[in-house]
Design a protein around this nucleic acid. Structure first.
Lengths: 107, 107
DNA sequence: CAATATACCTCGTCTGTCAAGGTATATTTA
DNA sequence: TAAATATACCTTGACAGACGAGGTATATTG
C-alpha cells in the first residue's frame, strides 16, 4: 500500500526540504532515501522530483552545485537556504493544522 | 489560516462521504457544515464540491434525489450507498497510513 | 427596491504528478 | 566480452482535481 498522488500532492516540497535539513544530497539519493525511510510507501517519481527541485530553486529555498566526482556519473547536489528553513517551518505548521482539520472531518 | 488546495486534494471525496454518513444532506448545507465544523479552516469551493459529487455518483458511492420543498429554492439531496461506506473505510485507512508516513518524513 | 442569503450549476484555467522517453558512465552477470 | 543492470541526470506532454468567474432562480432583510 503506497501513498496516492493526490495525497502526496502538496507535500513533495516539504519532504524534500526536510531531507535537505539533515544534509546536502542529490536527486537519485534523495529518492532512494525517502523510499527506504518509508519502506516504499512513499515514492517520489523522478519527474515529480525534478519539477519540485525547479520550483524550490525558483523560490530561493534551495541552491544547487555539481559534485566533484572523478569517477561515475556526475551528481547535482542540493542544499537548503535560510529562506528554505523558514519555508519548511511554515509548511510544517500548515501540515499540523491540516492534519488536525482532516482528522476532525474524517470521524 | 486555511487548508491549501493541494493538501485538500485527495480528501474532498472522503470529507463528503464522512458527512453523508451522519445524514443525507444537500450541497449548500454540506458546504456550510464543513466550514462551521472546522471554524472556516476547510472550505470546499462550490465548483470543487459539485465536481466531487459527480465523481462520487459515477462511482456509485452516493445517490441523489430532489427534496420536496414547497417553499424556497429546490434542494438536491445526496445519500451514501453501501459501496460508499466501504469506500469511505478504505479512504480512512489510506489516510491513517499516509498521515503516519508524512509525519515520519517531516521531522 | 436593492442587497443579501439560500440553492443550484457549468466552463475554462491552472498546477502538480507522472508515464514515457532520452543521455551517459560503471558494474555485474551470463 | 557482450548484455544487462545500477547509478545518475533530464524533458515533454497528458491527465485530473481545485477553483475563479460566471450563470439561474427564489426568499428575506434593510
Amino acid at each position: 500500500m503506497s501513498i496516492t498522488s493526490d495525497i502526496l500532492r502538496g507535500h513533495t516540497e516539504a519532504i524534500i526540504l526536510s531531507h535537505l535539513l539533515e544534509q546536502d544530497s542529490y536527486g537519485y539519493q534523495i529518492n532512494k532515501d525517502i523510499m527506504k525511510k518509508t519502506d516504499n510507501r512513499c515514492e517520489l517519481k523522478e519527474a515529480t522530483l525534478y519539477s519540485a527541485f525547479r520550483r524550490l530553486e525558483q523560490a530561493g529555498y534551495i541552491r544547487t552545485y555539481w559534485g566533484d566526482e572523478t569517477v561515475g556519473a556526475r551528481r547535482r547536489y542540493y542544499s537548503i537556504t535560510e529562506e528554505g528553513r523558514l519555508a519548511y517551518q511554515a509548511y510544517k505548521r500548515d501540515w499540523e493544522e491540516a492534519k488536525a482539520t482532516i482528522d476532525q472531518l474524517l470521524k
